[in-house]
Design a protein around this nucleic acid. Structure first.
Length: 434
RNA sequence: GUCCCCAUCGUCUAGUCUGGUCCAGGACAAGAGCUUUUCAAGCUCUCGACACCGGUUCAAAUCCGGUUGGGGACACCA
């Protein structure tokens, strides 16, 4: 039985790098019918925070990486001390007293060659002479990372340790401890790191944004997971979009790349748009509601789910993120139309009161107020007026939406409804006449 | 400084293990065009890479060595 683990420390949010490590562990467990263990490394009592723990769990659930078991290191301090005592008794470790009289337990490193057989990188050899004696238990009584990690991985029967590249140099230290403790050494797989746009580790500046922030920015979890997957693994056959279940079938840890990858928000946005386009409109409208609320659309049509669904459909193929929706579709949900000044100047400077009035009259006499009927009557009108369609389409769009961009005008008029359309056009007729 | 990892278009990658089918394929981005009612989407096209040097070989992106470059680790943080 294959057992893997993801071991975050609740001293910060779950970000891109952590999520990617979690993804590959989870994927490997699911691909092999193994178990995915979540271990909270909260030995640092001062920096560990409950809010981070919640954020990490919520984010993992949001992207769908459900765990089979969960453990907390803070509940296992006795175990670590027992094991340290054992090494002390066996003469493999020694006590060091600080000037204040506090005692730490230190592991004595003996000269030797340490070989690691990495599933992704192959053989790596280290010389123990380059490794200092390792602290096992700090003078405050808490275990160090490398020590607690080894005991946990062994006792939790982890078979494959899949983690970031930055842990490669911890590996020989940990192998030494497995041997000293008489535990079976697991298999290791070191994932390449994700780099920020300017090279170097991801930072706030270069994209190490919390997973919960991507949710707030309107990314779909499937899209984020798909993108993360593409960073150092390829499904083959020039495929970019892959369903997670399909990925589970095809994934093999040995196919993971060795090269560090640079995080690219533009490709993520493209993938997100692909997933938004594929999403069922009804489902998508539900996803979009929180974003409407966030922008203050909390009454009227914003509460009418059927209406929201219709409008969502109108914008579906042009949304890069869900957060774009309230910005682009605001005029459907509020009669206080936010006017783009440049657009007004460009398209509504001339006096179009006659044209607007005529169009209002035609809408009133229209037998069927549907998209086709609206377009037909509009086309007839411009023909009679002997003007180009675009000469009137753009001004009307700006008058109705406050913007120069958006869905097709006749769709806009249809979903705005006859009364609101007339009212908004009338405002401009009156303005020209006064 | 010491140790370790990595190296194909600007970015993500296919190809490298098992050398010839690769004057290197796809995607994102960028640029051009088509479509059109604006934007987006879609479609078509263009730009663009095997880091360098040496070796092995009839033949190297692919194997070997070195150089250079990038990254990581060297805590009583995790």
């Amino acid at each position: 039985m294959i057992r893997v683990r993801f071991a975050p420390s609740p001293t910060g949010n779950l970000h891109i790098g952590g999520a990617r490590t979690a993804l590959f562990n989870w994927l490997y467990a699911r691909a092999t019918g193994g178990k995915f263990v979540l271990r909270i490394e909260d030995t640092d009592q001062v920096r560990s925070k409950e809010e981070y723990l919640d954020e990490i769990r919520n984010s993992l659930q949001w992207v769908g990486f459900t765990w089979d078991e969960i453990y907390y290191q803070s509940q296992r301090f006795d175990t670590y001390r027992q094991q340290a005592q054992r090494l002390l008794d066996e003469g493999k470790a020694y006590v060091e007293r600080s000037p204040e009289g506090k005692e730490a337990i230190i592991y004595k490193v003996t000269p030797q060659k340490i070989r690691v057989s990495d599933l992704i990188r192959g053989e790596i050899e280290f010389d123990a002479q380059t490794i200092k004696d390792q602290v096992l238990i700090k003078s405050d009584g808490t275990p160090t990372y490398n020590f607690a990690c080894v005991i946990d991985d062994a006792q939790m029967q982890i078979t494959h340790v899949i983690r970031g590249d930055d842990h490669i140099s911890n590996t020989p230290k940990q192998i030494l401890m497995y041997q000293a403790l008489g535990f079976t050494v697991p298999l290791f797989a070191h994932l390449p790191l994700i780099l920020g746009a300017e090279g170097g580790r991801l930072s706030k500046r270069t994209g190490a944004t919390a997973i919960s922030d991507y949710r707030k920015m309107g990314y779909l979890p499937q899209a984020l997971v798909n993108y993360l997957l593409l960073l150092s693994w390829a499904p083959g056959a020039d495929q970019e979009l892959i369903d997670i279940n399909e990925a589970i079938k095809r994934f093999d840890i040995k196919d993971v790349n060795k090269t560090a990858a640079t995080f690219d928000l533009k490709k993520l946005a493209w993938i997100n748009n692909q997933y938004i386009k594929k999403e069922d409109p009804g489902k998508l409208s539900e996803l979009v509601v929180p974003f409407l609320r966030e922008k203050g659309f909390t009454s009227g049509r914003a509460l009418d789910l059927d209406y929201v669904a219709s409008i969502t459909k109108l914008f579906q193929e042009r949304l890069a993120t869900l957060a774009d929706f309230p910005d682009w579709a605001d005029f459907f949900f509020s009669d206080d139309v936010k006017m783009d000044e440049a657009a007004q100047k460009k398209h509504l400077s001339a006096d179009l009161s006659r044209e607007f009035s005529l169009f209002i009259e035609r809408l009133d006499t229209l037998a069927d107020f549907d998209v086709a009927g609206i377009e037909q009557t509009f086309r007839e009108l411009v023909k009679e007026l002997n003007i180009e369609a675009r000469a009137l389409i753009h001004p009307i769009r700006v008058a109705l939406t406050g913007k120069t961009v958006g869905p097709g005008l006749f769709d806009v008029i249809y979903y705005l409804g006859k009364e609101r359309t007339k009212k908004r056009l009338m405002q401009w007729v009156k303005r020209s006449q006064s």
